[in-house]
Design a protein around this nucleic acid. Structure first.
Length: 681
DNA sequence: GAGCACTGC
């Protein structure tokens, strides 16, 4: 069970009583304030953390593990690595500083390099996917947590590093959670083998200290002061049945009362809701009395084109109020200056996972207390602010303390494969900070890896097969790694690489609802009766034929940025194939072989047409339907494999590929012998 | 005949 964070009771935060937020995120995407007049060493000395510098150095020198809790603006992420370096701590190796997000790793490295007055990539560098800006001189290395995990597969003791700093630990991403176990094991084994000791520093914003400290052998907790401004928190008197209506009322109440320079940030759940409320706000704003002043409403969510995302940073014209309607992207990833008011609907859209069915469901649910504080804190970055919670204080008290760590609500197939690749054979007893739901890693997951031929089991010992080892070297879900690895047998690796790359990014299909007819007409020429994967392949081939022309992308409703990403992913996967000595052949016209490969990777997601015209998933025998966005929606193929099930109004299969039942038999004879017969009888 | 929060290798 997740632990309750040690927040002060909410009662103390009645309207009128300020509280201090204890959260911090690096200000990504935020255009850095030019402070060129002040030398960087003076700036560094002005940071709150500077007061504690010598004490910190003494502590960090002697401790093997430490937990650092730092308030907003304490400067811990940029300063701690430099303090270590200046004090000569860990000079025998590198200092790794991990971040959950790429942008954070990149921009923090840039910032610290600037403070050291050293070119990026020399003393200070960074490593993220597709980019390695380091050199033999690099001592302070910022990296994504996923990248350090990848490195650990080749070097489980992390011998290149003398210190590992796990930043933003409170976010509890799957990668950070696995890293906790990896660094702890590396630390222990290095000490047992009398090697260079590994120092571990866990940095977190929230106060769930006990969990971290306990896990790292009751390591001491160091607290850092920050620069957070007071925030007033308001609750509603009555529970709100319609949080959208409540948000609307709150926006205009603030708009009528507060000075126009005070911007409002509203936390909502998703694109559709945001766009709808934006329209309503603009309509109402048009008909307000003159005394009220104008308002500019800006939507913010991840799938918005980057140019439109940047609009949130532009100051509103003088006398005009900026109202930003955002998903939780503004909780961590994007920091906006000038926010004086936060309106928190208390709701969030998040993925939930059902380990029994293996089904993921995206659902609107209540935020956790930690999330509510994180949202509130967005109002107090430069000055004091207010947060309006559209729920009662009692409702707040009843929220769960901490967001459930991702590792407890995701499919563990990839994690288990990765652990095995790290040489951890006893996966069942891996030292997770928060154990995954009981039973999951015992039943569903090993059977998935079993079926794919990735693991061998003798008694209770699980080990990787040679195939499994190869699978782990791809940054892919095991089923897609398998798809690539069988492709040389069918002489179509080039095509399979393309398809898997296309599935690795957010969709390359651009579907503006207003131009639906046009989109359909354009897409017709790419459509394949063999399914969605083949349709995507056709689009990629056409894209390559015109050398990736942006013009072509626009005309054909293809997202050119994501297409660019596909090219990068494909190059990376192709490199791995070359390293594994796979033969790279192209099947050109014969796409049946490509579909055979997909059958080998996706056979657990197979569905069979029933006499009544419906479909049944062979793995669970549950009724499923073809999603209307599929090119096979009008067709009724006897057998298909699909990428995922989406549970909304019905259980929909998405991204389908037509297959022969014989191929499924070939892919997993044991598994299908019973399945197919059972389905036929 | 439907609609999808956010990351990352």
């Amino acid at each position: 069970m997740p632990q309750e964070p040690d927040f002060p009771p909410a009662k103390r935060f009645r309207p009128g009583s300020p509280f201090f937020r204890l959260s911090k995120k690096p200000g990504m995407l935020l255009p850095r304030k030019g402070n060129a007049a002040v030398p960087t060493d003076v700036q560094r000395r002005r940071l709150p953390i500077y007061q504690a510098r010598s004490q910190l150095i003494v502590q960090l020198r002697q401790l093997h593990s430490a937990v650092l809790i730092g308030e907003t603006g304490s400067g811990k992420t940029t300063q701690i690595p430099q303090y270590l370096y200046e004090a000569g701590i860990g000079r025998q190796g590198m200092v790794a500083i991990t971040q959950p997000r790429r942008v954070a790793a990149i921009s923090l490295a840039g910032r610290v390099a600037e403070e050291r007055n050293s070119p990026l990539g020399k003393l200070v560098g960074y490593t993220v996917r597709f980019e390695d800006v380091t050199s033999p001189d690099t001592k302070l290395k910022f990296m994504t947590d996923g990248m350090l995990l990848r490195e650990a597969i080749g070097d489980p003791l992390l011998l290149r590093y003398a210190v590992v700093v796990l930043d933003e630990a409170h976010e509890r991403t799957v990668h950070t959670d696995v890293l906790f176990g990896v660094v702890k094991a590396a630390q222990r084994r290095r000490s047992e083998q009398n090697r260079l000791p590994l120092k571990v520093i866990v940095m977190s914003a929230t106060m769930d200290v006990d969990l971290f400290s306990q896990y790292f052998n009751k390591s001491p907790v160091l607290y850092l002061e920050g620069r957070q401004h007071p925030i007033q928190v308001f609750y509603t008197k009555q529970p709100q049945s319609d949080y959208l209506q409540a948000a609307l009322v709150s926006i205009f109440q603030i708009h009528q009362e507060a000075p126009p320079s005070h911007d409002i940030l509203v936390f909502m759940t998703g694109q559709e809701e945001i766009e709808a409320l934006a329209r309503t706000c603009r309509d109402i704003a048009k008909h307000l009395p003159e005394t009220c002043g104008p308002m500019t409403v800006i939507p913010l969510y991840a799938s918005l084109p980057p140019v439109q995302q940047l609009r949130v940073f532009q100051p509103a014209p003088k006398g005009c109020r900026k109202v930003i309607l955002s998903t939780n992207i503004a909780e961590t990833s994007i920091t906006i200056s000038g926010i004086k008011f936060v309106i928190d609907t208390g709701m969030v859209k998040a993925k939930r996972y059902n380990p029994d069915s293996g089904l993921e469901v995206l659902a609107v649910q209540r935020v956790s207390k930690a999330q509510a504080w994180q949202r509130a804190g967005r109002a107090g970055r430069e000055d004091s602010g207010s947060c309006y919670r559209l729920y009662t204080e009692e409702e707040f008290d009843n929220l769960t303390g901490m967001t459930v760590p991702e590792i407890q609500r995701c499919n563990l197939t990839s994690v288990v494969l990765q652990l095995l690749a790290l040489g951890i054979s006893d996966v069942l007893n891996f030292d997770f900070m928060s154990k995954p739901p009981p039973g999951e890693e015992r039943s569903f997951i090993p059977s998935q890896l079993d079926l794919l031929g990735a693991v061998d089991r003798k008694d209770d010992q699980v080990s990787l097969t040679p195939l499994g080892k190869k699978m782990a070297s791809f940054p892919l879900e095991p089923r897609f790694a398998k798809t690539i690895l069988v492709s040389p047998d069918f002489s179509c690796t080039e095509e399979v690489l393309t398809i898997v790359s296309l599935l690795s990014v957010d969709t390359v299909l651009y579907n503006p609802p207003a131009r639906r007819e046009e989109v359909l007409a354009m897409r017709k020429k790419f459509m394949s009766s063999e399914g969605d994967h083949m349709t995507l392949l056709n689009i990629y081939r056409a894209f390559k034929k015109v050398s990736g022309s942006k013009e072509w992308c626009r005309e054909n409703f293809v997202n050119s940025r994501n297409m660019g990403l596909v090219t990068e992913v494909r190059a990376q996967l192709r490199d791995i194939c070359i390293k594994l000595d796979l033969k790279l052949e192209s099947s050109l016209a014969d796409l049946a072989n490509v579909r055979r490969c997909l059958a080998h990777g996706l056979f657990v997601n197979a569905a069979e047409l029933q006499p009544d015209g419906s479909y049944v998933a062979l793995h669970t025998h549950q009724p499923v339907s073809i999603h209307p966005s599929s090119v096979l929606f009008q067709a009724k193929p006897a057998y298909v494999v699909f990428n995922e099930l989406l549970h909304t109004s019905r259980c929909y299969m998405r991204d389908l590929c037509l297959v022969d039942p014989e191929w499924l038999q070939d892919a997993a004879p044991e598994y299908f012998r019973r399945k197919l017969r059972a389905a036929k009888s």
